[in-house]
Design a protein around this nucleic acid. Sequence first.
DNA 1: TTAATATACTATTATAAGGTAGCATTTAAC
DNA 2: GTTAAATGCTACCTTATAATAGTATATTAA
Lengths: 137, 137
Amino acid sequence: MKLSKTSEYALRILSYMAKDPSQLYTAKQLIETLHISDKYLRQLMTGLTKSGLIYSIQGRDGGYSFAKKPTEIFLSDIVDSVEGMNRYTGCILGFEHCSDDNPCVMHKVWVEARKEFIQTFTTKTLDKLNLEGVNKF
Amino acid sequence: MKLSKTSEYALRILSYMAKDPSQLYTAKQLIETLHISDKYLRQLMTGLTKSGLIYSIQGRDGGYSFAKKPTEIFLSDIVDSVEGMNRYTGCILGFEHCSDDNPCVMHKVWVEARKEFIQTFTTKTLDKLNLEGVNKF
DNA sequence: TTAATATACTATTATAAGGTAGCATTTAAC
DNA sequence: GTTAAATGCTACCTTATAATAGTATATTAA
Ligand code: SF4
Ligand code: SF4
C-alpha cells in the first residue's frame, strides 16, 4: 500500500497543478513549491508529456500545462504513465501467473482489499480530489 | 499495494508452515519448497524467531516451528516482525506529519482504500487463509 | 570424542530506485 | 543576431534492498 517516490511525485505535481488547471507551470516553480529534486522532476514531466497528460512549451516563457482536462485524468492514468499501475495491482506475494482458478492461500483475503484500492485509482479523476481549502502538496 | 520481497517471503513461509503447524521445518526444506535464497531465508527466520512468532532448534535435527498458534498470528504481526507495518499504513504521498485535521488533497480518497487494507491485515490470522486445497507458496 | 547436520552471525556483493551533473535544444525579447 | 530563460537528454553517482559468502556455534548419533 505504498507507492514509489516516482508515483508520489507525479500525483503531487498533478494534483497541485489541478488547483488551477489552465495555468502554465514552470519546472522551477514546481520544484520550489513541491520540494522535489530538480532534474528528477524534469524527467517526470517529460514522461508525463510523452504520455499525453500534459504538454510542454520549450524555450523562454515555457512550462507545462494540462493536455487533458483534470476531469478526464484518472489517478491510475498518472501511475500508469510513470511506472505502470500493474506494479500495484498484481500479486501481493509476487507470483507471476495468478488467477482465481489457481490461487495461493492469500488470494481471497487479498482480492477483497485490493478491490477497494483499484476501484479508487481507476474511478477517481484529478478533479475529484479535495482541491479546495487544502494547501499541502 | 505492493509488499517488499522481505514481507512477501515472510508471508509465504509462514502460510506454508501453517498448513501443518505442529511440524518442525528445516531451513533446507523451506528453501527447496519456496525457492527463496538460502541465507536470506535464514536471516528472516532468525528475525521471526526473535520476535517470538516461531522458535528455532539449533543443531542436528533442528529446525523451526510455531511459537504462537496460527490462530493468534495476525498478518500484520508478520509484516511488523520483519519490517514494520507502518511502512504500508502511512501516507500514500509520503508526508511525515498527517492527520484528518491537516490533510492533503488525496486524504479522503486514500483513507477509504487504506481502511480495507489495514482491516485485512490486522483482523485476519494465519489460520484464516485458504490453506485447504491450495498448494501454491 | 568425533562426525554430521543443523542454525546464528557478520561482512561483502549485486541490483534497482532515486537523485545529480553537464550540456544540448528551443523560443521570445531586445 | 544575441542573450536570457526555459525544457530535453544522457551519463553518472548515491542509497536502500536483496542476495551471497564464510565462519562460528549448537546438538545429536555413533
Ligand atoms: S493467488 Fe492472488 S494473492 Fe495469491 S499469488 Fe496469485 S494473485 Fe497473489
Ligand atoms: S493527508 Fe492523508 S493522504 Fe494526504 S499526505 Fe497525509 S496521510 Fe497522506
